[in-house]
Nucleic acid binder design. Sequence first.
DNA 1: AGTCTTTGTTACGGTTACGTAATGACTTGG
DNA 2: CCAAGTCATTACGTAACCGTAACAAAGACT
Lengths: 112, 112
Amino acid sequence: MQLSPAQAMELWHRVTVEALNQELPDLSARQIALLLHIYLAPPPHTVRGLSLDLNMSKPAVTRALDRLSALGYLKRQTDMADRRSILVKRTVAGAVFLRDFADLIKGQARRV
Amino acid sequence: MQLSPAQAMELWHRVTVEALNQELPDLSARQIALLLHIYLAPPPHTVRGLSLDLNMSKPAVTRALDRLSALGYLKRQTDMADRRSILVKRTVAGAVFLRDFADLIKGQARRV
DNA sequence: AGTCTTTGTTACGGTTACGTAATGACTTGG
DNA sequence: CCAAGTCATTACGTAACCGTAACAAAGACT
């Protein structure tokens, strides 16, 4: 996939502005990264693993999970093999949200 | 520019995660949108205009400008034709930051 | 058993952001 | 020249977020 710097900026511009105008639940950069990571990177996903992968502190991961699970975009499940760990699981609502977001990007990409 | 939903998500995922790992100054979605808008949409840019274009309250625009100008990414200039208004201007530092960001996107796009 | 380690969460203090409402500076129009 | 309107900012209360440090729960190891 080829993309000039100018195209890259125009795409990002269009998407961020459009996201603001649609008044999506406004997630921080970390929350978006976390959500995308859970849906796109291979499981399992634990707090510790996410903390390392995304370069954020464990409490920050916990709080992001609180927020995203309150929105219904994912859920926690304690790992039965090691009950200290929790496994972060996808949900239908999260998949729908990301699908819509992907469509927004796709739509704006077509205009670039 | 064509982009499947899956490609769109993968690109967004790669870029957001990479941005976290590089520990760029973490800007909110609004701040990024504002910065991109100022550099990509045709001037002039006033607080009121930005507030309308980006669907955010005027105080939110003022605060975002505070933050972004503290980082040196843009500057205010009072409009001499109507001294109530301010014109938001680009800076070299802002252009450099966005150029780097565009390169980051471009680099990740190549891997998608 | 008991200690040490690991995992996720909570507590705390501080920072940053928001929106509504009030304010100050300036322009406009009667 | 003064009242009304417009522009940006500040004030204020609230909510969200951060990182460090303390914590409870579970596992590992002797």
